[in-house]
């Protein structure tokens, strides 16, 4: 209990004292997580809509791989991205390994299947009759899509929140592809692991509260968007 209170005090101290290192780590964490989830949403939303509304040969196999991807262990994702970006790897010339971009790539790999699969599930629930009714109202394809997105706003934002939960909690892949380099690729989760290994539980606990606050703030904003203007 004492350790917990010390941790909270330390976290407040770190924020109030304007510790540059903590701010840099927090800012980088926020940046990579937001970029990752934005890209995952940008790709996963249309892909999930497409998979949810269409039927084609090979769709089930594709969905199977996406669903397997939801449980992809972060260290496996990290390993794949490392091999991809390794000097002798297919993208080795880009020299992206141990950079924030590499962390973003790994985080997209673990969050994209979640956003895609949950979006697909939501759109799959739309009945043929509802699609027919919207078409009969005189909607173009784009208007149909907009109506459906508005109708499924709650499920779509839940998919984004689930994806965000995955990226902000991610540590294994970030450690592997980022290398936890101070001032360059060190993010909150990798710092917590490092501080625990050094036995600095108070600092680790303080950082964990900052990480939790970050997750709370962003999830609260998304929840607000999800739940606003519900008429009874």
């Amino acid at each position: 209990m004492e350790l917990l209170i010390d941790g909270i005090k330390k976290a407040i101290d770190m924020i109030l004292s304007g510790d540059r290192e903590v701010f840099a780590i927090t800012w980088l964490t926020l940046k990579v997580c937001l970029i990752s989830i934005l890209i995952s949403t940008f790709i996963g939303l249309p892909l999930g809509i497409f998979l949810g509304l269409t039927r084609f040969k090979g769709r089930r196999i594709l969905l199977l791989f996406i669903n397997i991807g939801m449980g992809l262990p972060p260290v496996v994702a990290g390993l794949w991205i490392t091999m991809l970006l390794w000097r002798s790897g297919p993208l080795g010339d880009l020299t992206l390994l141990y950079s924030p971009t590499a962390i973003v790539m790994a985080q997209i790999l673990v969050s994209l299947p979640i956003v895609t699969s949950l979006t697909c599930t939501a759109f799959q629930q739309i009945s043929e009759k509802m699609l027919l009714q919207i078409k009969a109202l005189g909607a173009t394809r784009m208007q149909t899509l907009i109506i459906l997105i508005k109708q499924l706003k709650i499920a779509i934002l839940a998919a984004i929140m689930a994806g965000f939960g995955r990226v902000i909690a991610e540590v294994g892949a970030a450690m592997m592809v980022g290398g936890n380099i101070l001032g360059d690729t060190r993010i909150l989760t990798t710092t917590i692991v490092m501080e625990v290994s050094k036995g600095n539980f108070d600092i680790a606990l303080a950082l964990s509260f900052i990480l939790l606050s970050l997750a709370l703030l962003i999830t609260a904003a998304l929840t607000f968007l999800q739940q606003r203007k519900r008429i009874s």
Partner: peptide, 26 residues
């Protein structure tokens, strides 16, 4: 043309919004 089916298939929104939808789309 327009169509009314057995199930009312209304959208999540006000009654006003639902009735207006055809005109909004136009």
């Amino acid at each position: 043309f327009s169509i009314a089916l057995q199930q009312s298939l209304l959208l999540d929104g006000t009654v006003f919004h639902n009735i207006a939808i055809g005109l909004t789309l136009r």
